[in-house]
Simulated assay, not measured.
Amino acid sequence: MKALIQRVRSARVEVEGEVVGAIDQGLLALVGVEPQDTSASVAKLLHRLLNYRVFSDDDGKMNRSLKDMSGGLLLVSQFTLAADTRSGLRPSFSTAAPPVLGAQLFDELVGLARLQHAQVATGRFGADMQVHLINDGPVTFLLEV
């Protein structure tokens, strides 16, 4: 699994003009699922999302996690993150999980996140989404498990 995380002041996801998920300060995580991913991948990614230290402490150093600051987590499925872009001028999606597996593991990530963290919002799997964010920093990292 891969997650492109962005530290945000706020973020929201719209589907057909309707806001389906929104957070204030926290992390926006664009999540890509690959064919070899399992429930263990889900648990490992969630642990990293909740504990990765990307928020500033009192000295201005990135020493605080999402859990430490009780921020929001906006999870958005994005199969294009799993694309093979190593050659050519068009991405190949043969390295992305099939939709059924992608949906299953993304839903598992969302469910586990809601059990472990108070503020979790999501996009809508497989939908054409518009993601709005105010990036904080900008601070962006690619997490891979």
Rank of each mutant, 00 (worst) to 15 (best):
M69N: 03
S10C: 00
V120P: 10
P91Q: 06
K44N: 10
V15I: 02
R90I: 04
A3P: 07
D37K: 05
L142H: 10
R53W: 06
L143W: 04
L81Y: 12
S94F: 03
R7I: 03
Q130I: 14
V120K: 10
L27C: 03
L50K: 11
V13K: 06
L89N: 05
A127N: 08
V42T: 14
V100D: 13
V19E: 13
V76E: 08
F93W: 07
L142D: 07
A11V: 03
G137N: 00
Q104A: 15
G126N: 13
A29F: 07
H132L: 14
T140E: 02
D58M: 08
A103S: 14
L81W: 06
D37A: 12
L66A: 05
I5R: 03
R12K: 14
F93T: 05
R7N: 04
K67M: 04
Q25C: 01
I23N: 12
L27Q: 06
N63R: 12
R48W: 00
P138D: 04
L75S: 08
G102N: 09
L142M: 15
A29Y: 12
G32P: 03
L30Q: 03
P138A: 09
D57Q: 09
S92E: 03
I23V: 15
E144A: 12
F55M: 08
E16I: 00
P35D: 08
L45M: 15
S10G: 05
R86I: 00
E34W: 00
R90T: 13
R64I: 01
V131C: 05
R86A: 08
N51A: 07
T38F: 05
D59E: 15
L45D: 06
L105A: 03
L66N: 09
A103D: 03
A29T: 05
T85V: 12
A96F: 09
S77V: 04
A113Q: 10
F106G: 05
A3Y: 05
A11N: 03
P99S: 08
L81A: 06
L115I: 02
V31F: 06
S10E: 13
L49V: 12
K2V: 03
F106V: 07
G17H: 02
K67Q: 13
T122N: 04
Y52C: 00
G123L: 13
D37Q: 10
P91S: 07
A127K: 09
V15G: 11
R7D: 09
D37S: 10
D58N: 15
G111E: 14
L74N: 11
R114N: 03
D84R: 01
T122F: 09
L66V: 07
T122I: 13
G126S: 13
D37H: 12
G21L: 11
L101H: 08
T140G: 04
V139W: 02
A103L: 14
D84M: 01
G32R: 01
L81I: 01
N63Q: 13
